[in-house]
Design a protein around this nucleic acid. Structure first.
Length: 271
DNA sequence: ATCATCCCCTGATGGC
DNA sequence: TGCCATCAGGGGATGA
């Protein structure tokens, strides 16, 4: 589910609703996520949330004692902050009660997400240490893509979904960015010119930035921290539009499977 | 190193 | 109605 725009939308909401709040106590309803919620999680009690950052699809909540809560939304996760009296929903696995009568609820039907706690710099954590550049930063360029693609034979769609190459690009935005760049999703990463990688880096930035503006894409599960859906799905050019007409050329959008994931593209516009 | 495949899990949907 | 197969915003582990 959540790709960079959805995680960034969540980060902004949490910043509004939980920054400088103190965690009074926590409830764990289901510790069995992608990895178990660690036993040390009780350490966050009486800590204040002092900073909220994002790295790729990971949310990093810094606490007063310099520990960090690392949260990932997996395929179906969302985090809401509601008044304490609002009833829990199915799959609200973890709840942090804050000092203003609200509570932060981690909901994840498929439980591919995670909640971890670390004492070290979270960037050094094993899950984050080898991540590639942030797509919206100046470190992410066509030059970087070309250099990283080198001799690699992998399909470009899988290439840009690889978090070591660039973080935050998931199945929806990979298809969207490749469509806007006019690149066929199956093209080998090494068989794309520097010039075209410049274009692709820019379309990735554009698509992600526009999706953040729209509050993310909601297909089924995603909601922002107030429980509201995003609306970028209204602007999707190819994702989920197989059988429909391409906005550019009226040809029929096709769906193919690449690396076990559905991919959508226009056979006329993308080469 | 790189790549393809499998797997974790629940829920929605469609065919019979 | 039920039952079964398929698919879904991710990504780690494995083995070739």
């Amino acid at each position: 589910m959540p790709e960079l725009p959805e995680v960034e939308t969540t980060r902004r909401g949490l910043q509004q609703l939980t920054l400088n709040r103190t965690i009074l106590h926590i409830d764990i309803h289901q510790a069995s996520l992608r990895w178990p919620i660690p036993d040390t999680i009780g350490d966050i009690k009486n800590q204040t949330i002092s900073e909220i950052r994002r790295r790729g699809k990971y949310l990093l909540l810094q606490l007063n004692n310099d520990q960090h809560l690392i949260m990932h939304l997996g395929m179906s996760g969302s985090i809401t902050v509601l008044n304490a009296y609002e009833p829990l929903k199915k799959h609200d696995h973890f709840v942090a009660h804050l000092d203003n009568n609200t509570s932060m609820r981690f909901n994840d039907p498929r439980r591919f997400g995670c909640i971890l706690l670390t004492r070290k710099n979270p960037e050094q954590h094993a899950l984050l240490a080898s991540l590639g550049p942030e797509p919206l930063s100046d470190d992410f360029t066509g030059q970087w893509l070309k250099k990283t693609a080198n001799q690699r034979t992998v399909a470009v769609k899988n290439f840009i979904m690889n978090a070591r190459v660039v973080v935050g690009v998931g199945n929806i935005y990979a298809s969207e960015a490749l469509f806007k760049a006019g690149i066929h999703p199956k093209r080998a990463a090494s068989r794309i010119s520097l010039q075209r990688y410049h274009v692709l880096a820019n379309t990735i930035k554009d698509v992600l930035a526009e999706a953040i503006k729209a509050g993310g894409t909601t297909l089924q599960d995603f909601s922002n921290s107030e429980g509201k859906a995003g609306y970028f799905q209204q602007q999707l050019a190819v994702y989920g539009r197989d059988g429909q007409a391409c906005n550019n050329c009226q040809h029929t959008i096709k769906k193919i499977i690449i690396g076990n994931r559905s991919s959508f593209f226009c056979p006329q516009c993308q080469h």
